[in-house]
């Protein structure tokens, strides 16, 4: 990883794939994940996404293990909340508080949904350069000047990160104990104090960056050339068709198979 950017150049299938194909695949996965809370369908979807990233982009769970450490407690919290607020038969009773079976399944389902969508975006960010995203949007019909801004946003993030780091360091060397405090409230106070100068610095920088862009012909009206172009190839079509087939299979699974852990299942 490089700063705020996740993108890592590479030569895997997903690195070479057209960004439009990847965006289409993500949309299909998102729609699937958001239209069901069935735990078996979401587990199957997540498994296919994990397997797909490993095979097509050599992104193994080890590379997002740290993110998993953050997301697992979130899933557990969601599950607990749903177990407490949902009705239905109890799965277990702890200290007089009954945990709803339906709530547990719903919480796990929502957690799996977040997980599937999260690693999908992670895989996309890791294999797609910001300029490819801009090119894809341009090819999809968005004027280049607007499409480019998506790519530029990724360039602006490390600038903000540097600015924040510099300000925090400046505060620390002038004796502010809050900047290095582990106490979340004190640390938060330091961040709030840093926000105004960071905003002012960003405004100044954005004006200078706008000037640099202008000096390099950003607003020229004439036709533009594209040094790097992506064409939608057979492999990209296979990716989209593959994801659509997966969606069809999971929809069949949802409609044809009874939900697990329910009466009569």
């Amino acid at each position: 990883m490089s700063g705020t950017l996740l993108y890592q150049p590479g030569h895997t299938f997903l690195h070479r794939a057209d960004a439009r194909a990847k965006i289409a695949a993500i949309i299909v996965v998102l729609v699937l994940a958001l239209t069901t809370t069935r735990i078996d369908v979401l587990v199957a979807l997540t498994a296919v996404v994990v397997l797909g990233l490993a095979v097509l982009a050599r992104i193994t769970p080890v590379s997002y293990a740290r993110a998993l450490l953050l997301i697992v407690p979130l899933i557990l919290l969601l599950t607990l909340l749903q177990a407490l607020v949902q009705g239905g038969p109890a799965l277990a009773t702890v200290g007089g508080v009954s945990l709803s079976q339906e709530g547990v399944l719903l919480g796990l389902g929502i957690g799996m949904r977040l997980f599937a969508m999260g690693i999908c975006f992670y895989g996309f960010s890791l294999t797609t350069s910001p300029s490819d995203i801009a090119l894809a949007l341009h090819k999809a019909g968005l004027p280049y000047k607007f499409a480019y801004l998506t790519s530029f946003a990724f360039r602006f993030l490390p600038l903000l990160q540097d600015e924040a780091r510099t300000l925090l360091t400046a505060m620390a060397v002038r004796g502010s104990a809050e900047t290095s405090s582990r106490h979340p409230i004190r640390r938060g106070r330091a961040i709030v104090r840093m926000l105004f100068p960071m905003l002012a610095g960003s405004m100044k920088r954005s004006s200078e960056i706008a000037l640099s862009m202008e000096l390099r012909g950003y607003s020229l009206p004439g036709p533009r050339t594209f040094y790097r172009t992506h064409s939608f190839r057979t492999g990209d079509a296979f990716l989209v068709v593959g994801v659509l087939l997966l969606a069809a299979a999971l929809l069949v699974m949802q409609w044809q198979l009874p939900a697990p852990f329910t009466e009569g299942a």
């Binding site: 350069s129 530029f152 360039r155 533009r224």
Partner: peptide, 26 residues
């Protein structure tokens, strides 16, 4: 300040970007 003049994420893109804007042939 070179920092504010780098407007792309990769060096190759940075070098070609101005030329692309001017419609220079590949």
């Amino acid at each position: 300040d070179p920092e504010v003049q780098l407007v792309n994420t990769m060096v190759r893109e940075e070098l070609v970007w101005g030329m692309e804007n001017r419609g220079i042939p590949v």
